[in-house]
Each structure stands twice: as structure tokens, then as C-alpha cells.
Design a binder for these strands. Structure first.
Lengths: 251, 251
DNA sequence: GTGTTAACTTAACGCTGTTAAGTATTTGTT
DNA sequence: AACAAATACTTAACAGCGTTAAGTTAACAC
């Protein structure tokens, strides 16, 4: 009776080996190109053995996606420690793109595949959907930027700003997943494009007093000049010049 | 001997019927889900008959994409009449998105379907590729913006700027094609997001002297303040102040 | 009329995801 | 210890896929 545990343990071990093999192959060749027989061969089992652990090929991908969803949520969670919302916004964009390029197949399934069956079936709906969580994290950050007074007065709707920023970085990510091999376009380093994009968007969004610039180490340095910005600027570099502000107000 | 023409004509007719059937099915079910046997059945031929007209399944997709690329290039061509490059850039973005949202399935085939093998092999290389054409139109416009002195000095690479702008508007377009029905996100009107995005990007890209703003009628109004901007501002509104330009040169 | 070519069809190959049925091995019950 | 049941697989096979080799039929050239 007692060795049920060992049986279960061994089963989970095989299950894990299947997932690892599948992940490695999916990442290398893409979901469609990978065959069940390939996966089976890699773990030295028969193809049918996989079906004892997973319903079908798609469930393999779903399980792996679930892992990555949680991973993305984790990455976002870590960015919670970045105090300054504008800096956080920037890091958020880079982290999102990194995630997409690291797991292009999972990213494809998440955001590039028109779903016949809506994005969330039933189970995932209830217990805090990760996609929604990630979006909410973005929206919260944008809202904070508004509260901190970073944004130009014509930008008021955090939802619209969030969607705009998400769309932009998603575009770069997805375009590179699909067309990065296209030799007709002399692609610039995707990281450079992302940095330019975030830089441009943030400059376009923020007031002139709160210009944002990236220094060489890749850290966003928020240059705050208006009185409202004072506490904002003192997150990382506690600069002595902060108190010197003239307190000028626009309009 | 004379009826060779008719033979050729009939062949092209069948070829066209294959393409139409393939397009309809690709659009409805997506490239991977469509089988050669389905296409054949639709035109009441044997699956093998298709292979007399096309090398393989992928060539079907390539041909259809080519058609759409040319269509997009046509839309872009019409924008050649807009003199001011900054204004043209803005209109370009909106036209691109409109095209994508009007023909979402075509757009999917063009920019959202991961290609098994790189986009263009050899034949399409020679006769001015349409994707390249559309992209080149964008790049040319960006280059003109640089020449006209619109851009901030830190932006110098038209390739990078073009890729950034393309990615951003593509992201909005593709995200809406895939997720506009998602109830988890309270989508703002996509046109509003596009306008905000272009507005933001252009403001972030340009010098303070050449701020760009959109008036209520949706027409981009270039606000030129620096001497260099004088002629730029006179595209639609022929203002009498144009001749006053001092003709100062930058750098 | 004969031979050639064009435009197909029939049949088949090797591959795919998946399943039904069989086989040991381990487990729980008597 | 004996026996049934469940577990964790394997073997064999199915239907369907993209694609090809070989055969067929009709239209053409001479």
C-alpha cells in the first residue's frame, strides 16, 4: 500500500521528461513541425506512451504555455519593485518583448492566433487569468504615471494609453517572430528598435518638464523639473539638485 | 495552331479558380487547417491537379500574398500626393491600419502567418517586391522627414525609425484582429488608439519646434515654428508667411 | 494518320496525430 | 499464497495529410 507514493512520483517524473523534451523541440522547430514520434524518441518511449500522460499534442503546448504565463506574471511581479512608474513602464516593455522572443511559439498561441475557441475556456477564467493580470499590471503602472503627473494633460485615459503601449511593443515582438528572417528588410537589432520605441513613446506621452532619457547602462533616468516631479525623481539617484527646482508651471 | 491561345486562357482560368478557392478556405480556416483535398473538392478537381499549376501548398500562399501586397502598395501609392512627409507619415499609418482591418484575413496571410521558409525565394526578387515596395515607401517618407529637419538629432537612421513605426501600427492592427473580441479588455475605439499612437510617436520623434498636432477633422496640422519649418507648413494651408523663411541651415 | 504535348486522374508512398487492443508489472484484497 | 484489478506501458493499425510516379485522354502539329 505504501509504495503508491513512489508510483506517483515516478509517473510525474516521466511526465516532466515529456514536457522537457517537447519544450526543447517546440522552441527549436516550432509547434507544427514537431511530431509526437520525435518527442517519444527523445525520451526513449513509444509515441503512444505520451497519450497516457497528456490528452493530445495541444495539451502539451497548453501545459507549457501555462508555465510561461506564470513565468511572465513572475517577471512582471519582479518589476513591482521599481518605484518610479515611468521607469517601470519602460522595463515592462522590454520584459514583455524578451518574453515573446524567448518563447515565440507560446507567444504565437497567446497573442497571434485568432482563437476559434475563445482565449479562456472556463477554468482559467475563475482563478485570475494571467493575461488579464499582465494587462492590469500595465494599466496600473500607466495610472500611476498619470497620478505622478508625468503625462501631458491631453492624455487622461489609462485604458487608451495602456492599449497603445501594449500594441506598439506587441507589434515589434510579433513582427519579428514572423518576419525576422525576411532578407528584404534590413532589420535593425530588435532591442535597439524596442529602446527607440519606448523612448519615443515616453517622450511623446510625458510633459516637457518630465522628459525621460535612457543612459548607457540601460537604466531609465527620469529627469524631473516641475514641482510635482520632485518626489518622483528621487527613486534611485537621490540627487541634491532636486530642491533647486524653480517650480514653474505650464499654462 | 491558332487555338493555343484558348488553351492558355483556359489554363489560367483554372489557375485562378484554384487561387480563389484557396483564398476562401485560407481566410476561413487558416493556412494550416486547409488541405489540398479540400481545395480540390471545391473546384471539382483531383488534388493532384493543383500540382500542375502550383509547385506546392506554400506556393499557393505566396501567390495570394503577392496579390495582397500589390493591393497595399496601391493604397500607399495614392498617398504620394501628400507633400509634407510628416503628414504623409501620419496618413500612411492610418491607411495601413485601415487596410488591415478592412481585409483582416488578407492581413493575416501577409503579416501574421509564420512562413515555413523565408518570404521570397528567387523569382519575386527581380521584379520589385511589393512588400519591399510598401516598406520602401515608408522608409522614403521617413527619410524625407529627416531631410526636412523634422526629427530630433538623436534619430538618424531611417531604417530603424521605419521599423519602429511599422511595428507599432502593425501591433495595433494585428492585436485587434486577434483580440478585439476579448471581453477581458475594455477596448477603446481602435481609430482613437491609432491617432493617439501616431500623435505620440510623432511628437516623440520630432523636435519641439516641429510639433505635430491633429485637429478635429482628422487632418494632421503641422505646426512649424523654426525657420526651416516654414515651407513644410505650407502644404494644405497656403499661408502668406511662407516666403518669410530665413533659409537658415542646421548644424 | 501518327507522334507529341498538355491537362489531367488513379494509385500509391511516407508521413502525421491518434486509438484499440494486448502485455507485463505492480498493487490491493482475500 | 492466490487472484483480481489497476497501472504503465507497447504493438499494430487507422484515417488523413502533402506529394509523386505512372497512366489516361484529349487536343494539337506535321
Amino acid at each position: 500500500m505504501g509504495s503508491n507514493e513512489r508510483r506517483e512520483r515516478e509517473k510525474q517524473q516521466v511526465r516532466q521528461r515529456i514536457l522537457e523534451a517537447a519544450r526543447e523541440l517546440f522552441v527549436k522547430q516550432g509547434y507544427e513541425a514537431v511530431t509526437m514520434r520525435q518527442i517519444a524518441q527523445k525520451i526513449e518511449y513509444t509515441p503512444t506512451a505520451i497519450y497516457f500522460h497528456f490528452k493530445d499534442k495541444e495539451e502539451l503546448l497548453k501545459e507549457l504555455c501555462g508555465q510561461d504565463y506564470r513565468k511572465l506574471a513572475g517577471v512582471f511581479q519582479d518589476l513591482g519593485s521599481v518605484r518610479d512608474p515611468l521607469q517601470r513602464l519602460y522595463q515592462l516593455g522590454l520584459a514583455y518583448m524578451d518574453f515573446g522572443l524567448q518563447f515565440p511559439n507560446h507567444y504565437r498561441l497567446m497573442f497571434m492566433t485568432p482563437r476559434p475557441h475563445p482565449l479562456h475556456d472556463e477554468e482559467l477564467v475563475q482563478k485570475g487569468n494571467p493575461v488579464e493580470d499582465a494587462y492590469e499590471f500595465l494599466r496600473t503602472t500607466v495610472s500611476e504615471c498619470l497620478i505622478w503627473g508625468y503625462m501631458r494633460p491631453e492624455y487622461k485615459d489609462p485604458e487608451l494609453i495602456s492599449q497603445m503601449l501594449w500594441a506598439a511593443i506587441h507589434g515589434l515582438t510579433s513582427l519579428h517572430i514572423v518576419l525576422s528572417g525576411d532578407k528584404w528588410i534590413q532589420w535593425r537589432p530588435v532591442r535597439k528598435i524596442a529602446e527607440a520605441m519606448l523612448d519615443t513613446q515616453i517622450r511623446g506621452l510625458t510633459t516637457r518638464d518630465a522628459g525621460a532619457k535612457i543612459d548607457k547602462s540601460g537604466v531609465l533616468e527620469v529627469v524631473a523639473k516641475s514641482p510635482l516631479m520632485m518626489k518622483a525623481a528621487t527613486t534611485k539617484k537621490r540627487s541634491g539638485t532636486a530642491a533647486k527646482s524653480t517650480g514653474k508651471k505650464r499654462k
